[in-house]
Simulated scan of single mutants.
Amino acid sequence: MVSRRSWVEQIMGLPVSVLARGEEAESARADAAVRDVFADLVEADRMFSPYKIDSAVSRLARGELSWDEVDPVVREVGERCVRARDLTGGLFDAELPGGGWDPSGLVKGWAVERAAERLREVPDLDWCLNAGGDVLVLCPSSLPFTVGIQDPRDPGRVVTSVARSDGAVATSGTAARGAHLYDLRTGDPVDTRWLSVSVSGPSLEYADVLATAAFVAGEEWPGVLAALPGYEGLGILADGNLFATAGWPLGEVAAG
């Protein structure tokens, strides 16, 4: 029987879990790597959360820090946000309407990928790192994990699944936080008949960025994914119908 072990912590206001599989799953080395992953994500939240009064994001907003004074990691994320804005033609933008900077749409995927390097250091370990529904996996065994896609109309239900032995799946929509996304080209809230868009590809950082940009794009969302090779998408309409790009590997679709 293949050994398995799971861990879960509440970080960034959402559940972050790790599922490990293989001979190393129950080892002290795997446990230490997971603890380091959680610590890295706590530190990213401390630095980038717009809800923490002492974060770099909050201090920039209040004018207590300038860009010349922030930690180099904050400047790196700022540069990544600019590249993401350029890549998506402004559909993703960390600059807020009316001023301010909120890199949350990029930071989670970036921070999870960065922290996951701890898990990559454990040899022969299959792992699935799930940060509130945005998922990164690596399976040296080549036996994939099955990633469920949540029904945005019923958070307790999965409408379909995708098998991955490497890479990421990210979802953007209104199910978890309501209508919180804006089209920053116009400053208006996103108005779309799509309830969510999920993106699968090699990088969680870019899958997350492209999912956000695709959701903002509305009817034109499949074209957004053409900005980078290797990314495919699945959109869920308000009536529950699904639309997938040509390369999206559909799994079992729930009835109804």
Rank of each mutant, 00 (worst) to 15 (best):
C81E: 07
L242C: 11
V199G: 04
C128S: 12
W7L: 11
V2R: 12
S55W: 00
D191W: 10
D208K: 02
V73A: 11
R21Y: 09
R153M: 14
L143A: 15
F243V: 13
V199P: 04
I149P: 04
S17A: 15
V162I: 13
P103R: 00
R21T: 09
E9A: 15
S196M: 05
S142C: 12
L125I: 11
M47H: 05
P229R: 07
S141V: 13
G133C: 10
G178S: 11
R35S: 13
E69G: 04
S58I: 00
E79K: 06
L181N: 08
E24P: 06
R80F: 05
R157G: 05
N241H: 12
V42G: 00
E79P: 01
V216W: 00
P144R: 12
E117T: 14
G22N: 09
V253K: 13
A175P: 01
V37G: 00
E95V: 15
L41F: 00
A254L: 13
R85N: 03
A39G: 02
Y206P: 00
R59C: 01
L143Y: 10
A115P: 03
P50W: 06
W221Y: 06
M47D: 04
D191H: 11
R83F: 06
V57T: 15
V37R: 01
G22K: 09
Y182N: 09
G78K: 00
V135R: 09
L181Q: 14
F145A: 08
G100L: 02
G230L: 01
V2I: 14
Y182H: 15
A20N: 06
D93L: 06
L129M: 01
L14Q: 12
E64T: 00
L65T: 03
A217L: 02
E23A: 14
D124A: 15
R5P: 02
Y182L: 15
D151Y: 08
L119S: 04
L237C: 10
M12G: 07
R62T: 01
D31R: 13
G251R: 06
R83Q: 13
R75Q: 07
W194M: 12
P222I: 04
T146R: 14
W221K: 05
P123L: 10
R193P: 11
E205W: 08
P72K: 03
S161R: 10
